[in-house]
Nucleic acid binder design. Sequence first.
RNA 1: CGGGGUGUGGCGAAGUUUGGUAUCGCGCUUGGUUCGGGACCAAGAGGCCGCGGGUUCGAAUCCCGCCACUCCGACCA
Length: 478
Amino acid sequence: MAKEKKVEAITDMEVDFGQWFTDVVTKAELIDYSGVKGMYILRPYGYAIWENIQAVLDKRFKELGHENVSMPMLIPESLLQKEKDHVEGFAPECAWVTMGGSEELTERLCVRPTSETLFCDHWSHVVHSWRDLPMKYNQWCSVMRWEKTTRPFLRGREFLWQEGHTLHATAEEAVAETKQMLEVYAECCENWLAMPVIRGRKTEKEKFAGAEDTYTVECMMHDRKALQSGTSHYFGDGFAKAYGIAFSDKENKLQTPHETSWGLSTRIIGGIIMTHGDNNGLVLPPRIAPIQVVVVPVAAHKPGVMEKANEVYELLKKAGVRVKLDDSDNSLGWKCAQWEMKGVPLRLELGPRDIENGQCVCVRRDNFEKVPTALKELETAVPALLDAVQQGLFDKAKKNMDENTHVAQTLEEAKAIQEEKGGFIKTMWCGSLECEQRMKDEAGMSSRCRPYRQEHLSDRCAVCGGEAKEMVIWGVAY
RNA sequence: CGGGGUGUGGCGAAGUUUGGUAUCGCGCUUGGUUCGGGACCAAGAGGCCGCGGGUUCGAAUCCCGCCACUCCGACCA
């Protein structure tokens, strides 16, 4: 057929991965551009994905004893500057408010790039006794970082996230919190977003400004690049000291508490797209898909079809499935392409022939398998199919990550693998910044993490040949 | 921040070299026929030509400045 495609075509990811991504986010109606560079409009369908992720995390945070709060959006410059490493890390990308109405402010105000300083300042006022600890706070908000290169979801100047901040009496407790929250992110990625992760710690070079230790979950995208999908920091007592937070312990001795923070942003939606998407568009994991099932009536004008479609819709809705009935007058082909583009995990086709046979045809978005299903069994069959799609997506992503993770014994080998295949490269490392920098300069890869799951590949650092301390995973990152 | 590309109804483009008041396809609206993988007929609506200056009788078109998007690189808690 020489006819133009009616649902807007997207670029194949093999042709141009970046363009494919941009096509998907705009044409699946997740994002629209605004008038300001790097600031994006999250459209209803995109925001609904975020709301579903929020629901999962918010519930988990609260189960673990965290409380939601709301901090101001603006930070006085003097407050930001109290912790030296932190301000050095963030100052270059802060946006500043200098005017109030038509008058210049006496002190300029930073639009929060993150809120450690605000939480610390607040705690310095309200924490006095060991009885006040731990403080386990979280806030859902947006933050601003004046990035030079921007991309929808992956790097915006303003983005939505949650930032958890906690304060503990002891270092042990704070470290445990840091690790626990990383695990919450890992489980969210794996169980809800069908994204396999590598859990680990950042190197000294890659850790958060002002942190003593940064933990991360790293995912592999379809183009074999890495995406840091969630991060959790242990601050020690550095911030607490800088901001004058202290408490009296049980022996009435003045102590400095220990702090953590952890965050996950809408960037994860970019991760979902680049992990599961294909050349037909978006593919959403059923557990967070705003629409899990779309009912598409076939030959809807024929007697009984719409009635049956409505029945099925109501049935599934009652069964707790997020279902949509496409009662538009678009052609069947258009509808199929459209819902595939929008990544709906399961399409349920229902036509006169089906009704005659007491069945419908379920089509899986992950592998396009057509599954004839008896209408009587829908209530149980649909949730089972959704689970199968969820598992199918996870397995496919896991396979991609495993097949594209390689071992290198030398820098030359690492460089060759990176150039030929890309992906994650595991090597031994001596722990020096020099070797890490050389890997970056010569092989173009940054350290993604020092995984929890260590393997002993050899006794020698792949870069300098010196004594190896641990295994590092390297990769090209977003 | 450096290099390349782009900006014209909702989307995609033609028109810019040679200045004369905007064209096409899709989408949209209405009516009708269709409908098991991207339908068809007919009649309509819709445009500050990215923004701001300048040149000119006249600017989408020429000149200056700016902005945004996009790709590559640098940077990126």
